[in-house]
Amino acid sequence: MSSSTLSGESSKKNSTIQSRRSRNNSLTSGHRACQGCGEALGARCAIDAAYHAAAGKITVVNATGCLEVFSCSFPENAWNVPWLHSLFGNAAAVATGVAAALHSQGKEDVRVIAQGGDGATGDIGMGCLSGMFDRNDDVLYICYDNQAYMNTGVQRSGTTPPLARTATTVPHKNYAGSDPQTGKNVAQIAMAHEIPYVATASIGNIQDLEKKVSKAINIRGSKYVHVHVPCPLGWGYDTAETIKIARLAIQCGLFPLFEAEYGKLARSTAIEDPISIEDYLKPQKRFAHLFGKNASSESLDILRKIANSNIEKYRLGKTADD
């Protein structure tokens, strides 16, 4: 393949669902997401992929958050699939109920998706999510991770990277953004439940995202896909750079792309053109304090260590198996 554009090769063999005219546009125009919203794009890509792979037979449960607020505010619903919003922390459980209802109606061909942001997934909804995994309920849970509570004005969440500035982790003399040694890896938590399928994906690699969602939607049991979706507002970069930032996160090792089956790492995507973490961090205002006059190199080392650990742990080096 000489290029990795969305249309794939000239033969269109590797064309993405997003490049097709026939795509469902599960999240259609007129939604109220900010300009350049990564989550809006991530959600359309993921749900379209699921829609395509399940022959249109999908239902979606949505946790409270940006995605829910911008997509479905009376009198305008941007969804083109059956969609249910209940609460912030219960999407996984609601989806369990949907799946159970479909099961008892003998409609198991209708596939169930629960989706939410990082707060709804890894923080407030953790209990319900863990319960769903524990029971191996037939639900695909998709987390759109923009690494903070964006809907409420960019406060720290459990997936906020160490040292990132948020409205509740403002850098001051003795504080450099979010505290070191904080943050949780929800995909790893999912893996610990030994569910059939866990994957990470990014809007910086739509081909990969579509492949993983398409695969996951038809697996019976619990599936978890964690999608990296940069937020121009919360991260402080130009609205046009969303995809680029997502791509840089992959390239520097801070967002590893991998798949796990029954709790074990199955495949990972080797980084093709490795870059330094600085190349990823510098364009984002949330990390600006790491580069100023008074910045300490130790701070960057903390993030570099995470990237290096990812590269080693998920085998993202050139020798990786993909």
Binding site: T59, V61, L84, S86, L87, G89, N90, A92, A93, V94, A95, T96, G97, V98, A99, A100, A101, L102, S104, Q105, G127, C128, S130, G131, D134
Partner: peptide, 16 residues
Amino acid sequence: ESEMAALSVAIGSQAT
């Protein structure tokens, strides 16, 4: 795993 889940599951199934 919790009452929150109990009623949430019921919300999901009833809505289906």
